[in-house]
């Protein structure tokens, strides 16, 4: 229906050509707006539905996780790493100089005060989305003892910061809070 306003039409000689031009412009514009109005709800329907948005939080019991170990839980369909760091690992993370980091960020900015032993990360490599290894003590953890991505070799330290490899940024920290000393709520 969207008829071109730049019509090459030479038929008919309306009494008032400027009025016709105006009407053509108006009709063309309103048709374009109508098209956009039809497209909007359709495209919008592809965004997450209300039920997906509502499944926003999970609780994790920390008690069973021994120092040096990590677990993976699912939050919004994403793997979340919860790692109980050893004191050495915490120290290594805290001592890193900003100059050594590709994406400088302090360990304190990535943990909760008073709960420095706990590292909670979105376990998705910031390169192209693989899941890095390193939660089990027996996994390959890379030179910095954190996580190692098997896809293209990105290496993360014990704070989940990128140290080497193609990944551009640190592993993300999801929103979470301590409900008690042994329980966190993610989301």
């Amino acid at each position: 229906m969207a008829h071109s306003t730049a019509s090459t039409d030479t038929h008919g000689h309306p009494a008032d050509p400027s009025k016709r031009d105006m009407l053509e412009l108006l009709a063309g514009a309103s048709a374009a707006l109508l098209g956009a109005g039809i497209a909007w709800p359709l495209v919008s329907s592809m965004n997450p539905a209300k039920d997906v948005l509502a499944l926003s939080s999970v609780e994790v019991d920390l008690a069973p996780i021994a120092a040096g170990q990590g677990i993976v839980v699912s939050w919004q369909g994403k793997p979340i790493f919860v790692r109980h760091r050893t004191p050495e690992e915490v120290k290594a993370a805290q001592d890193a100089k900003p100059g050594e980091l590709n994406d400088p960020q302090t360990d304190a900015a990535r943990t909760k005060p008073g709960h420095e032993a706990w590292m909670v990360l979105v376990g998705i490599c910031t390169h192209l989305g693989c899941i890095p290894l390193g939660n089990k003590a027996t996994d390959v953890r890379g030179e910095w003892g954190g996580w190692f991505c098997p896809c293209h070799g990105s290496q993360y330290d014990t704070s989940g910061r990128i140290r080497k490899g193609p990944a551009p940024t640190n592993l993300a920290v999801p929103p979470y809070a301590f409900e008690s000393d042994s329980k966190i709520k993610i989301g």
């Binding site: 008919g12 016709r20 009709a27 109005g37």
Partner: peptide, 24 residues
Amino acid sequence: RVILYLGFMACVTYALKRKIWAAV
């Protein structure tokens, strides 16, 4: 809102149709 908008469009297209057909 949709019906008002389409009503407006109907008026515009009808006016344009009258103009276009005036010569015929």
